[in-house]
Design a protein around this nucleic acid. Structure first.
Lengths: 116, 116
DNA sequence: TCGGATTATAACGCTTCCGTAACAATCGGA
DNA sequence: TCCGATTGTTACGGAAGCGTTATAATCCGA
């Protein structure tokens, strides 16, 4: 199964959602930050810095910095891996889950309003 | 008419597309920048700094700075309004149009691959 | 014509992010 | 028990964005 969209519909949807995010949000996230957030919240744990860096195809410091920022905002948290102390496990937070949920709702409602 | 999505589908779609943008793109755009770009390319001209600032609900310097960056990348261009020299008209470029087209294709193909 | 309103930009000090390179901590096999 | 490999973070100089405030150019009505 799949979602069928024409290019113009796809772009209009993206436009509406992004505009919604910009307008209601004080924080202006980058594609990388959103990508990290969605990976952590949509894909099965555990998530590590190395794993995220590989998935996004960026360097590890990029992940570390993004986690610093989003950790400060309490959208994710970090914990040492007990089994291998070199690893850091990135965990979900209540605040982060609510944020993701809000984005989901925004996409859904934008899809509903989408002219075709 | 509209696009019907469940929240989980919506988020998965967003995840796939954002991930695609991060992976293939050297430049890491913010929600504001993408928003400006989509507004310029999807909504009827003319586009001015003031108009974009009002639409995004951000200050004008935010728009000016974003236009500086994206102008440097040749994704948009600026021209004085002949009729009112205080205004700056933001114009589309070939490079920008191709970029937008690429995003559209990315969303469409991600929608197709979306598990339901 | 002149003066307030409007438009976009520049300037300011500050924060965040960049890529690269160096680093400390830890692991695990020889 | 070493010692190379691995993990995540820090350090670095530079670029870019922030919000606020100031400024130059232009408009337009009294």
């Amino acid at each position: 199964m799949s979602v069928t969209l024409r290019p113009s519909e796809a772009l209009n949807l993206w436009h509406m959602v992004t505009l919604g995010l910009v307008r209601e949000d004080s924080h202006d996230f980058s594609a990388r930050q959103i990508s990290i957030l969605l990976t952590v919240y949509l894909e099965p744990p555990p998530h590590t810095v190395r794993g995220l860096a590989a998935k996004l195809q960026v360097t590890k410091p990029v992940i570390t910095r993004a986690l610093d920022t989003m950790g400060r905002l309490e959208l994710v948290s970090r914990r040492r891996d007990e089994a291998d102390l070199r690893n850091v496990i990135i965990q979900r937070t209540v605040k982060g889950a609510l944020f993701i949920e809000r984005i989901g709702d925004l996409i859904v409602s934008s899809g509903k309003e989408l002219p075709r």
